[in-house]
Amino acid sequence: MNSAEASAATSYATVDGDHRHELEIKRSRFITYLRRVETEEAARGLVAELRKTHFDARHHCSAFILGPDRSVQRSNDDGEPSGTAGLPMLDALAKRETAPGTADLSDVVAVVVRYFGGILLGAGGLVRAYSESVSAALDTAPLLRRQRMRLYGVGAGYADAGRLENELRTAGTEVLGTGYGPTEATLKVALRDSPEASREFAERLAALTAGTSTAVDLGTEWVDLR
């Protein structure tokens, strides 16, 4: 069983690449960086990267959520009073609605670099500042949805592969690509991971190829939907 099959989630949202946003609050600069990551090592790698880039900043606070089920959640105050930075940042990530009534943001790390402006914000002020910094960055960050899909390989003759791909796309089937082997082409298609979707696809394929092509189940995989 692969990781896609092991997860109870069927879809979730994440950030599309890297994103930067800056706020100034009572003379302090709060620079938020968002990055799509899939491991704790990659999340901590962004923190290390920003410590070098912003070597003269006082704090590099962080929070990240990983996995389709959001099972890994970590935060770090990096010298700010306990609970005033990392946890508010994590809360902003965890409660972000990516669709009405749906909070499922994952595979994302947020790092807020703070340049102290000389005015103390107090515990409540820090909580609001770090929470607002991440929320404001998410307001402008591009997101994408990841969907757990069932993959199939469909064999076709070289002469028929292009036509079959076009007809499948026209019918609404997600075609991820076509590979060419020594004797035939193989179309890689992705379907919703449900028995109904698989049955409907088998019927559509039979109609398009007069029953000459069959689909080989390749398991499940997470696919980016933009």
Results as ranks from 00 to 15, higher is better:
Leu93Gln: 06
Lys95Ser: 09
Lys95Ala: 04
Lys95Thr: 15
Lys95Leu: 09
Thr98Trp: 05
Thr98Leu: 01
Thr102Leu: 11
Asp104Val: 12
Leu105Thr: 10
Asp107Trp: 03
Val113Tyr: 13
Arg114Ala: 06
Tyr115Leu: 05
Phe116Val: 14
Gly117Glu: 13
Gly118Gln: 15
Gly118Ile: 09
Gly118Phe: 08
Ile119Glu: 14
Ile119Asp: 13
Ile119Arg: 04
Leu120Met: 05
Gly122Gln: 04
Ala123Thr: 15
Ala123His: 08
Ala123Phe: 08
Ala123Val: 12
Gly124Glu: 09
Gly124Tyr: 10
Gly124Lys: 02
Gly125Glu: 13
Gly125Leu: 11
Leu126Pro: 05
Val127Leu: 01
Arg128Leu: 00
Ala129Ile: 02
Ala129Pro: 03
Ala129Arg: 00
Tyr130Cys: 04
Glu132Asp: 14
Glu132Ile: 05
Ser133His: 05
Val134Met: 13
Val134Phe: 08
Ser135Arg: 12
Ser135Asn: 14
Ser135Asp: 12
Ala136Trp: 00
Ala137Ile: 12
Ala137Asp: 02
Leu138Asp: 12
Asp139Ile: 11
Thr140Asn: 02
Leu144Ala: 11
Arg145Cys: 06
Arg145Ser: 04
Arg146Gly: 03
Gln147His: 09
Arg148Leu: 09
Met149Glu: 04
Met149Ile: 15
Arg150Asp: 08
Leu151Cys: 08
Leu151Phe: 11
Tyr152Cys: 02
Tyr152Gln: 00
Tyr152Asn: 00
Val154Phe: 03
Val154Gln: 08
Gly155Thr: 09
Gly157Trp: 09
Tyr158Thr: 08
Tyr158Arg: 06
Ala159Phe: 10
Ala159Val: 02
Asp160Lys: 10
Asp160Ala: 15
Asp160Gly: 06
Gly162Lys: 04
Gly162Thr: 15
Gly162Tyr: 13
Gly162Asn: 08
Arg163Gly: 04
Leu164Lys: 06
Glu165Trp: 04
Asn166Arg: 14
Glu167Met: 05
Glu167Arg: 15
Leu168Asp: 15
Leu168Thr: 10
Arg169Gly: 07
Arg169Cys: 07
Thr170Lys: 12
Thr170Asn: 02
Thr170Gly: 13
Ala171Phe: 02
Ala171Tyr: 07
Gly172Cys: 14
Thr173Trp: 09
Thr173Glu: 15
Glu174Val: 13
Val175His: 07
Leu176Thr: 05
Gly177Met: 01
Gly177Leu: 12
Gly177Trp: 08
Gly179Ile: 04
Gly179Ala: 14
Tyr180Lys: 09
Pro182Ala: 07
Pro182Lys: 03
Thr183Tyr: 01
Glu184Gln: 13
Ala185Lys: 01
Ala185Leu: 08
Ala185Pro: 00
Thr186Val: 12
Thr186Asp: 11
